[in-house]
Design a binder for these strands. Structure first.
Lengths: 159, 159
DNA sequence: GGACTATAATTCGATATCGAAATAACCGAT
DNA sequence: ATCGGTTATTTCGATATCGAATTATAGTCC
């Protein structure tokens, strides 16, 4: 008589999907990043920054933080380390001197060229555990889920 | 004439699925954890530990680390903080004095009871952006993906 | 039973991450 | 031209995270 568990069936379905979602991302990233870090000393966060700069060009700090979905203060730390290693540089925007624009250095571009193809290869290999149609379906479901989660602003005030 | 991009179509499919997978987990967790942390001071990692102890009972350190897919050294830090706050306790296993067994304290159980139902509610609400059938399909795809990624041991030696 | 090996947990140093507070620069109104 | 509010970035303190090294205990082999 599971009267206490009235939502249990749909709850278990949702929880199961959530857990598998979290585990699959953890498992994939556990395959993807350790080789990168061991061979090139590049952390996942650093890769995110380098990749964004490669694809989108030099960017203001806050735009980069928004793009990567991380806090500005966190990004400061990551860029500090990349700058120390000579992979990126910061310049003040002459139009608005509050703004710090980060860009790849030639060294950064060269480093990226060394490891990026391999990284993409590993990524594609990992995703190829799914058939093409399944990849498309996964992308669709994740987009639907992510969009909904992003749009829920602050509906969480319990009644 | 995209001769340079010979793998481009299947690559883009895989990359797209990967990106949406990562973004959806980030978006969902961004909805789930800040309220928990603001109202109860519980971090995501701490929740993981408390939840495992609730469902599985007292556990050796290394078993807990394996369960949560985190390193033992990381787990030490998380448990240190939980112990400091009185939510868990450590006891040496009398059978093997190397082993540290972590368990919930009455305070920990009480705290869990305060916030866990709300948390599950938020989680289910977030996942309900997908229809029941879609949740099942997402779970299947993620399980397939995660299992494959876990089984690839070290096939990454480039030729 | 003493030496060697293996395993459990912690410590250590580095990076990442957040929110709150501090700084600096811009902008609008007067 | 200044006051006050806004926005961009950094700083600070706390937690998380990992791998490598360390410490403590078990187990094994002779």
């Amino acid at each position: 008589m599971p009267t206490h568990y009235n939502g249990s069936l749909s709850e278990r379905r949702a929880l199961d999907a959530y857990i598998k979602l979290m585990r699959s991302t953890a498992a994939i990233n556990a395959r993807l990043f350790p080789p990168l870090q061991a061979a090139f000393g590049i952390t996942p966060s650093q890769l995110g920054v380098l990749e964004a700069l490669l694809h989108l060009g030099p960017m203001p700090h806050c735009a980069l933080a928004a793009k990567l979905l991380v806090s500005a203060s966190n990004l400061t730390t990551v860029i500090d380390n990349l700058e120390r290693d000579g992979l990126v540089r910061r310049d003040r925007d002459p139009k608005d001197r509050r703004v710090s624009i980060t860009s790849l250095t030639p060294t950064g571009e060269a480093r990226l060229a060394e490891f990026f193809p391999q990284h993409v290869e590993r990524l594609v290999a990992a995703m190829n555990a799914l058939e093409p149609g399944e990849q498309v379906e996964l992308a669709r479901l994740c987009r639907k889920l992510g969009t909904a989660a992003s749009n829920l602003a602050s509906h969480t005030h319990a009644d």
